[in-house]
Design a protein around this nucleic acid. Structure first.
Length: 787
RNA sequence: GGUCCUAUAGUCUAGCGGUAGAACACUUCGUUUACACCGAAGAAGUCGAGGUCCGACUCCUCGUAGGACCACCA
């Protein structure tokens, strides 16, 4: 069964079907075994699986498979995230609709219908790489189950006083007249003018550079950097705003860039992000210069009603007229624009919902400390994120598609009315509250905003464990493991920890393993760079096991370069494994496992195998799967194939019954051990071999639910390792002599070795003779004589 | 701008306070009883500057380069 004859596709298809049909990876709700539960990251439904997915899901799967073979009852559901913008876009494109032209209810329905049709195809990629999820445990972040839990989460936080509604600046597109979220904002280079404008301080000129002179009427302060000697003397004084006869305080703040413009900056509510921070930090009054339609407001006096650009132009002209414009030069700078229409984004005041958590920073750090982080240093990123938090969590999105707030407002008194838990999920645009307002009114206005997608995905441990019956919900939560990528520690991981603690006063999981991202020649893959490797192609060319073999050489937390040659190495491993198996079972046709007397070489080899088992088990328990793979692979190739098989060949062909039996016992058991150690990495080929040669002699229905290898009970002697190494050493030296003499490896020789060494090897001299091709072993200085 | 990670043969990686180990590629040789998708042998390496130490590739400081996340771009 040489590699080219065997069709890997056939093998993959056969076992995929078998696993599904036999329910090999099903969670067993009635089992008494220990539960190991995994909070699988739900991939975004926006296209097909990419190579980064292939790598990180393989890594989780190594762990899941190991834990399963260790005897755990594995809860490993699979979710998809289809509640975000990416999915909205995809469906709009595929179904030729625009979400805003239909009701939210109808769009969600369309989305669910689309998923019904397309999801199996989407998920197939995960099945194809051999992910051992329980495919009966599926969820989507927009389905009824998830909507219910997400809205429940809102209600619970509302009842606990953890959510509030408040005026806050929101990103706004004056062209489309809609609020927009961060993801819809796009960087764009535009040309504008940088204007040096004259403010007056005690009748002296103070030059401030700005690109937004039309915001002068909304100016609330001017800032300089605390140590800036040019402006230190101005501290505490007032500056007079040109054209508008009002004064603002001069303050110092570290957020100022001394090198930019004149090193002094005006703060308007709201020009940009920093302006918003300052407004909040110094509690400035909010002065709005621009309406939602993108026109100037009343506070701008004579400019009222003008469009932004018109006002800018006019103000510049007026400044020039009054000799208040010293300089203006054209610059190109990057601004945020709305990606649909390219209009510059403005900030407007609006009512937004927040989760109050800024008061919990200390607790958050403690929650993070309680998690077991793999690798450990990732905890620092979590801490940094928390230490840098400046705002409460803004959870309302002025989007169309998503999970709605279960909220109405009384038309008469403005009172907030939330849905009843038993009515969830609700869509306030369609449903009505089931009671009157306190004021007696029955007229309500629905909340139109939807929840931030992270508000829902941060509930994933609940969404997934609630797929189970009540008893198992308790057994699976907190979950054992959260695997995820490092780039979303500050979103998904952080928010999940916060939610879980706010709702249930406990962490959502025990262990966290963080994977790196897949790069190509050191750079992150992205569509725009055009450096994408498609896993489907890799799968077609080399097979799932080879792809997974590659993924298994990555280290947790570290970015990982895609190397085709490593996938090829994986394929070579598979071929070698099949060839070695083929050789062994050519000779072990009617083998039945039984107790036998072991030849000393064989016993010593098993001692070495035991060492491998211990090392691999320890490494896997601390999630160091790459060590397990490289150790096992190395042992298989260098010890098992290149040495042990060569050593026992002669005995297998020509030995006595006892010599043969001993070799057979070791061949059978060490191959089975190697298969099991590699099964988490290369599940298809190991299953193929197991089913073909081992199944009738072993208990388990599949290698993947067979028992993880334990040490083989054999006698262990003090010098075993030394003897083994000496044997290998001598074999290597003989091969070296043959190589130098340009003789073939099976040429016959007379071998001379050191007397002490010969004494050490006295129990295994026959095997040494066989493997080295020596007719005679003499004592003395090491020498190889050719016959 | 803040934070974090990384730096080892031509390439990609492992490891370690005391001789740096694989793989791919390269050179030479070999193959009548698993495998040429093979076997054997060979050549080839610790980013730079300081410091701690009997001893540093390993620990510390600084630098340089690459990468990631977050923030910012008046």
């Amino acid at each position: 069964m040489a590699g080219e004859i065997v069709n890997l596709k056939d093998i993959e298809e056969r076992w995929k079907k078998f696993w599904e049909k036999e329910g090999i990876y099903r969670f067993d709700p009635s089992s008494k075994k220990k539960i190991y539960s995994i909070d699988t990251p739900p991939p975004t439904v926006s296209g097909r699986m990419h190579i980064g997915h292939a790598c990180s899901y393989s890594q989780q799967d190594f762990i899941a498979r190991f834990m399963r073979m260790r005897g755990n009852n594995i809860f490993y559901p699979f979710g998809v995230d289809n509640n975000g913008v990416a999915t909205e876009r995809l469906i709009e494109k595929e179904e030729h609709v625009r979400s805003r032209d239909m009701s939210r209810e109808a769009f969600i329905k369309l989305c669910l219908n689309y998923l019904k049709k397309e999801l199996p195809l989407f998920i197939q990629d995960w099945k194809n790489i051999g992910i051992s999820c329980d495919w009966n445990m599926e969820y989507s972040t927009i389905n009824e189950h998830s909507r219910k839990i997400s809205q429940w989460s809102f209600l619970d936080l509302y009842n606990k006083g953890r959510v509030y509604r408040k005026d806050a600046p929101a990103m706004w597109c004056p062209e489309c007249q809609t609020g927009i979220s961060q993801v819809e904002a796009q960087d764009k280079e535009i040309e504008t003018t940088f204007n040096d404008i004259v403010f007056k301080v005690e009748n002296k000129d103070l030059i401030i550079a700005t690109t937004r002179p039309e915001l002068l009427p909304a100016c609330v302060a001017v800032f300089y950097y605390p140590s800036d000697s040019r402006y230190k003397k101005l501290k505490g004084k007032m500056a007079k705003v040109p054209l508008f006869a009002f004064e603002v305080p001069i303050l110092e703040d570290k957020r100022v860039d001394m090198k930019k413009g004149t090193g002094i900056v005006m703060c308007c509510t709201f020009g940009d992000q920093t302006d918003m921070e300052w407004q909040k930090a110094y509690n400035f009054p909010i002065k709005l210069a621009i309406t939602e339609e993108g026109r100037m407001t009343e506070i701008t006096g004579k400019y009222k009603g003008m469009k932004i650009k018109e006002a800018r132009k006019t103000i510049i002209e007026d400044l020039e007229k009054h000799d208040l414009l010293k300089n203006h030069k054209k610059i190109v700078h990057i601004v945020n624009v709305h990606e649909r229409c390219g209009t510059e984004i403005e900030f407007v005041k609006s009512k937004q919902w927040f989760v109050k958590y800024l008061d919990l920073k200390k607790e958050m750090i403690k929650w993070g400390e309680k998690l077991n982080w793999y690798p450990k240093f990732m905890e620092v990123r979590y801490d940094n994120w928390i230490n840098g938090l400046q705002w409460d969590w803004l959870i309302s999105r002025q989007r169309y598609f998503g999970i709605p707030f279960p909220v109405w407002y009384c038309k008469k008194c403005g009172e907030i009315v939330v849905a009843d838990e038993k009515d969830l999920p609700v869509d306030p645009l369609v449903d009505k509250p089931n009671k009157k307002c306190k004021c007696g009114s029955k007229d309500f206005i629905a909340e139109k905003d939807v929840l931030d997608t992270w508000f829902t995905s941060s509930m994933s441990p609940i969404i997934s464990t609630r797929l189970l019956d009540r008893k198992n919900q308790e057994n699976t939560f907190p979950m054992s493991l959260r695997p995820q990528a490092h780039e979303i520690i500050s979103f998904w991981l952080f928010n999940t920890v916060v939610k879980s603690n706010l709702h249930f006063n406990k962490n959502p999981w025990k262990d966290v393993v963080i994977s790196g991202i897949v790069t190509l020649k050191g750079e992150k893959m992205s569509k725009s760079k055009g450096n994408i490797i498609q896993p489907q192609d890799v799968l077609k060319n080399y097979g799932a096991d080879a792809l997974r073999y590659w993924a298994a050489s990555s280290k947790l937390g570290e970015d990982f370069d895609y190397q085709e040659k490593d996938v090829i190495t994986g394929k070579r491993f598979i071929t070698k494994l099949m060839n070695a198996t083929n050789f062994i079972f050519m000779n072990l046709k009617d083998y039945r496992p039984r107790k036998i007397h072991l030849v000393d070489t064989d016993r010593i080899f098993l001692v070495m195998l035991n060492e491998l088992i211990i090392k691999c088990t320890e490494s896997f328990e601390s999630y160091e799967y790459s060590k397990v793979k490289s150790e096992t692979d190395g042992f298989f190739w260098n010890n098992f194939c290149d040495n042990y098989l060569e050593i026992v060949k002669n005995r297998v062909y020509n030995g006595t019954k006892e010599e043969k039996d001993s070799a057979f016992y070791v061949l059978y058991n060490s191959l089975l051990t190697i298969l099991k150690l590699m099964a988490p990495f290369t599940p298809f080929v190991t299953e193929e071999i197991y089913q073909k040669y081992f199944k009738d002699k072993e208990k388990a229905k599949s290698i993947h639910i067979s028992e993880w290898p334990k040490e083989i009970q054999i006698e262990k002697k003090k010098d075993d390792k030394e003897i083994y190494n000496l044997l290998r050493d001598i074999i290597s030296k003989v091969r070296q002599e043959k190589s130098i003499a340009k003789k073939s490896m099976n040429s016959k020789i007379e071998l001379t070795i050191d007397k002490k060494e010969k004494e050490m090897l006295k129990e295994i001299l026959n095997d040494l003779k066989a493997v080295s091709g020596a007719d005679l072993i003499k004592e003395g200085k090491f020498k190889v004589e050719f016959l």
